[in-house]
Every structure is written in structure tokens, then in C-alpha cells.
């Protein structure tokens, strides 16, 4: 993915946990690739229990509903668009997330989200997907699938879930 002068800072699971703990409202956007690994939906459930609101993009709402995970449904471009609106008060009307984690979304759309948030919002974006995404604020490095799953496990443990 292309980038300009402002590039993502590589971050490990412990670093992500610190950012989440400091944030007022964290949200996690997941997408159509949520079934690519059997454990991903489990991590979503645990992160939800850590107080992170879930935004299910594409048709992933089907899987969060099946699992009983509370989630808002929106297209990834829709939710990104909302996040760039300073007057938007969040899906629950209680305030806009200041941190957006992103995982299991098509890479082109993930990148579009990061590009848009980087330029037109103050939301901190964090890629917790398998690949380093240069337009996010923070990103996991590019990882093998095994290590990525290990990273997600460490993130959940660090958040106590």
C-alpha cells in the first residue's frame, strides 16, 4: 500500500493494549474475512467483553449475531465516513470512538479506512490484522498466521479477557 510522509508506527499487542486502556472509547471493525481463521470470532468475543464496541462490516454481522456478540452493523466505508464527521456522536449517541481497531477486512478497504482517518479525523487507527498497514496510526507488523494468532491471544490476555 502507498503512503505519504505520515506512516504507521509498528506496535506489539502490549502496546495496543496500552492505547486501548488510555482511550475513552475503543471500537473494533471486523469484516468479511472473519472466518479466514477459526479463532478470529473468539477474539472478537473476548475483545467485546473488554468493553470494545464491535462494528460488523460486510456480512460479518451474521457471525457476531450467531455467537451472541453485540455489534453495530455498517459498511466499512460508512463507518469510516461517520468517524470523519466531527459532529457524529457514535452509534449509541454517547460519543465517537477515539480509537478504531481494524481486523479481518479486505485489505483494499482496510487501507481506504486508514487513509481516510489519517487525513480527515483525529481518530487513532490500529491495524491488528496480519499485515503491516502503513496508513494506520499504529499497526502490527506483517506476521505469519501462527504468530498473528499468538499476537491476538496476547492482546486479549493483556486486556484481561
Amino acid at each position: 500500500m502507498e503512503a505519504g510522509p505520515k506512516k504507521a508506527i509498528p506496535v506489539d499487542p502490549e502496546g495496543v493494549a496500552k492505547i486501548i486502556n488510555r482511550a475513552e472509547r475503543s471500537s473494533l471493525a471486523i469484516g468479511a474475512m472473519i472466518l479466514e481463521n477459526d479463532r478470529l470470532i473468539e477474539f472478537v468475543e473476548r475483545l467485546s467483553k473488554a468493553g470494545i464496541s464491535i462494528v460488523a462490516t460486510a456480512h460479518s454481522i451474521k457471525y457476531t449475531t450467531e455467537r451472541g456478540i453485540p455489534a453495530y452493523k455498517a459498511g466499512v466505508v460508512e463507518v469510516t465516513n461517520l468517524l470523519t464527521d466531527p459532529s457524529w456522536e457514535g452509534f449509541d449517541g454517547k460519543g465517537k470512538p477515539d480509537v478504531l481497531l481494524v481486523m479481518a477486512i479486505n485489505l483494499d478497504l482496510e487501507n481506504a479506512t486508514f487513509e481516510s482517518l489519517k487525513n480527515y479525523s483525529d481518530v487513532k487507527s490500529i491495524c491488528i490484522d496480519r499485515y503491516f498497514m502503513i496508513n494506520a496510526t499504529y499497526s502490527f507488523p506483517s506476521l505469519t498466521e501462527e504468530i498473528w494468532i499468538e499476537y491476538l491471544e496476547r492482546l486479549c490476555q493483556e486486556l484481561g479477557v
Binding site: 502507498e2 503512503a3 505519504g4 510522509p5 505520515k6 466505508v77 469510516t80 465516513n81 470523519t84 487501507n111 481506504a112 479506512t113 487513509e115 481516510s116 489519517k118 487525513n119 480527515y120
Partner: peptide, 18 residues
């Protein structure tokens, strides 16, 4: 809704501009 594929403008010799 914009998602800048590139953050720079490289179209004239004023730039590249960030």
C-alpha cells in the same frame, strides 16, 4: 468520501507537496 491513495501532490514543480 475520500480515501487518498497518495498523500502527496506531484503534478507540478512546486512539489512534491505533502
Amino acid at each position: 468520501f475520500y480515501s487518498p491513495t497518495c498523500d502527496m501532490c506531484c503534478l507540478c514543480s512546486f512539489g512534491k507537496c505533502d
